[in-house]
Amino acid sequence: MTKTILCVDDSASMRQTIKLTLAVRGYRIIEAVDGLDGLGKAENTTVDLVITDLNMPRMGGLEFIDALRQMSEYKGVPILFVTTESDEALRARAKEAGATGWLTKPFAPEVLLKVTRRLLA
C-alpha cells in the first residue's frame, strides 16, 4: 500500500527536494507550508510519516508536533523534524514535543531515504 508522507516546510525548495527523493520511490507526498497548514492537512488525511521543519511562520515545528501528538490518530505515527544545527537542546525539545527523529540539514537524498525506510515498515 502506498505510504503517505506529510512534508511541512515553509521553504518550497526543501519540500521539492524531499518530494523528488521520495515520490520516485513510490511514496505519496502531501505538502504543507507551515504548522497550521500541516495540522489542517493532517486532519483530513491518513498520514504514515510526517517530516517537518522547526522554524516556520504562523506555527513552528515544536508547536505543530505537540499538537499532532494530541490527536489520537497521530499516536504512533513517526514524526521527523529537519534542523540545521546539531543543537542538542533543540533536539531534546523537539523530542519532548513528541518527535520520533530528525534530519540534519544538509542531508543527502540517501539519508532521507534511509531514515524514511527505517520509520515506515
Partner: peptide, 14 residues
C-alpha cells in the same frame, strides 16, 4: 517508543 512513532520491526529489519 510506540506512541512516538518508533517501530522496532523496521529497526530490526534494518
Amino acid at each position: 517508543a510506540f506512541v512516538l512513532g518508533t517501530n522496532p520491526v523496521t529497526m530490526i529489519r534494518e
